[in-house]
Design a protein around this nucleic acid. Structure first.
Lengths: 137, 137
DNA sequence: TTTAACTGTGACAAATAAAATTACATTTAT
DNA sequence: ATAAATGTAATTTTATTTGTCACAGTTAAA
């Protein structure tokens, strides 16, 4: 799993803390200690799904569009990391009953496990992240 | 996540299908299409925890010790992949309220998510894997 | 008692995946 | 015009995962 999910959560939480004003990819990148280009790539995806809007040029940047209460971690997980749970088996031996079927069986189990975990991740919103981040201060 | 969990499940399922007799790391490796040394490393861990025993020398190999009904995927997940869910954030910016606390908050969420998923993985045993692998035939 | 077939591990190489960097086109306020 | 931004492709660097080699120890059996 790459950390796009983490960065999505981080970015939206950051934006939620600065409502109504533009933040640059550089500012967010500095907060998350990653490269601005990486932030822009993740935000590009979030923009495509309407969570944020952006503005180019001087004074531009990113701004939250969605209600932080409506955005759950499960939505963001699916967007950025769906299927990443499932450990990729190498193409196993078709001659062997285990090799031939293990991938199918495990994929199905992990797919269900991911949905199951989704219930849990659905209980967290960006607003709840904001609250937690403030509290942990 | 590396595929040690997958290999552990694969190996134990393989051994459960051949009860009472020794299987070599080479045979298991061929079934899983990985290198025998990798299988031996994973099995070394399973041995340390009593799931299997091994015998060196000619005619040696690995054999299941535990009751396949008693070994759950959650046990094996914890053994091989505990914590791997949690996406590692780079050490973020301590000057920023988001950067300073995001890792703590997300780590805690992911740790709980993993436990939550554990409930689901606990519902699968090696014996159930054997049955599924046979059925999918 | 020598040989061949195993496990057990350390050390290193190769392959893959993730992240950073560079480059540059485009937009926009000043 | 210029400077500050996004948007994205291409490339390089770094980290992780996997494979390979080497070899010591164990065991059965010729």
């Amino acid at each position: 799993m790459n950390s796009n999910f983490t960065l999505a959560v981080h970015s939206l939480t950051y934006l939620a803390l600065l409502p109504g004003r533009m933040s640059t990819s550089e500012a967010i990148a500095e907060s998350a200690s990653v490269h601005p280009v990486r932030i822009r790539r993740v935000l590009s995806l979030l923009k495509k799904h309407g969570f944020i809007s952006s503005k180019e040029g001087t004074g531009g940047g990113f701004i939250l569009q969605a209600d932080p209460n409506d955005v759950t971690l499960w939505q963001l997980y699916r967007l950025t990391s769906a299927g990443s749970l499932s450990p990729k088996c190498p193409a196993a031996n078709e001659q062997c009953i285990v090799g031939a079927n293990m991938e199918t069986v495990l994929s199905s189990i992990f797919s269900d496990a991911e949905s199951y975990m989704g219930q849990y991740l659905s209980s967290y919103s960006i607003e709840s992240m904001v609250e937690m981040v403030k509290q942990t201060k």
